[in-house]
């Protein structure tokens, strides 16, 4: 029963966001854009966490998605928004499938650390790439959407609407996946891998698939972010960025696909206002917010919205 309600609620949220778009103040559109980009990445983190895995290097795929989107434009002069997102999906899917063969053997802190190592190697490579602007990165601009010209005044609104739709589709598909047979294995793997193996399911295959899905989500988030922000740099794969994703995922909770999306919005809002009203101590504000959530809401912010207790 809950599934139907989630799907319905998702559709309502997407519809409300789309309808509200033209009336929102511009700063709010950019706040939503950034939060949704993060939200999609954190959807992937949530899937990994449900499988019992935490990656300290998911910035790798976030960054790859963004650079793929940017480089399609640089190399082939393609600046269609859908193609840029598609580029992000393809590149992250290929890379994560390859790395997944290796990483799916790893668990716990070692999974986290090996992911971290890979993301930092990408960082090193990008910093050495003078043609890609080294640490300064380069600017990215989407000019068309499925062939239609979107430059000009309505650009932000178009980007916003596309982001809302992509987010809706991603959340919906992930929600369906989580409810599927393989999706339900995730929790079982987290609780006890041996039992899953005894049941006749392949732990490695499931971990691998979940890893690729989460990487692709991060790639989509990265590509959207590149289009949104209009600029990409290697900082996207530096470890504090990856840490931020874990941070938001823990802050949100993993009980529902809404949790990461809402958590990302709360995180961005807190940070944005902390930057503005306490420029000297915004890190402290973030740190304290996080401690408070972890101490008083162990199931994440989402546990505010659920009555029955859900295992975090």
């Amino acid at each position: 029963m809950t599934r139907d309600r989630t799907v319905l609620a998702l559709l309502v949220v997407v519809a409300v966001l789309l309808a509200a778009g033209p009336f929102l103040p511009r700063w709010m559109i950019s706040l939503f854009n950034v939060s949704m980009g993060y939200g999609i990445v954190v959807l992937g983190m949530m899937l990994l966490m449900r499988t019992g895995l935490v990656s300290f290097g998911h910035g790798l795929y976030y960054c790859l998605g963004a650079y793929a989107a940017g480089m399609i434009d640089q190399i082939w002069n393609v600046s269609d928004m859908l193609a840029m997102i598609g580029g992000g999906i393809v590149v992250t899917a290929v890379v994560s499938t390859i790395l997944g063969f290796l990483l799916s053997k790893y668990r716990e802190i070692f999974f986290a650390m090996l992911s971290l190592a890979f993301s930092m190697i990408l960082y090193g490579l990008l910093v050495k790439s003078a043609s890609l602007g080294s640490t300064d990165g380069f600017n990215v601009a989407a000019k068309t959407l499925a062939g239609m010209d979107i430059t000009g005044k309505g650009l932000r609104l178009t980007v916003y609407s596309v982001t809302v739709v992509v987010m809706g589709i991603a959340a919906l598909l992930l929600h369906r996946y989580l409810a599927s047979h393989r999706g339900r294995l995730a929790g079982a793997i987290r609780d006890n891998e041996l039992r899953v193996e005894y049941m006749g399911a392949s732990v490695r295959a499931t971990v691998h698939v979940n890893y690729v899905i989460s990487a692709v989500l991060a790639g989509i988030g990265g590509a959207l972010m590149a289009i949104n922000i209009g600029h990409i740099d290697p900082e996207m794969t530096y470890w504090p960025q990856s840490g931020e994703f874990v941070f938001i995922a823990i802050l949100s909770g993993t009980a529902s696909v809404f949790a990461p999306l809402g958590g990302a919005l709360v995180f961005e809002t807190v940070r944005s206002f902390a930057y503005e009203y306490s420029p000297n101590t915004w890190q402290m504000v973030l740190g304290i917010t996080m401690l408070v959530v972890m101490i008083f809401l162990p199931g994440g912010l989402w546990s505010l919205f659920t009555r029955k207790k859900v295992a975090a």
Binding site: W27, S30, G137, I229, I232, D233, E235, Y238, Y275
Partner: peptide, 12 residues
């Protein structure tokens, strides 16, 4: 905080 955060702050 890096360029992407600065873009967000600039818009703000």
């Amino acid at each position: 905080g890096g360029a992407s955060k600065q873009v967000a702050e600039f818009r703000t």
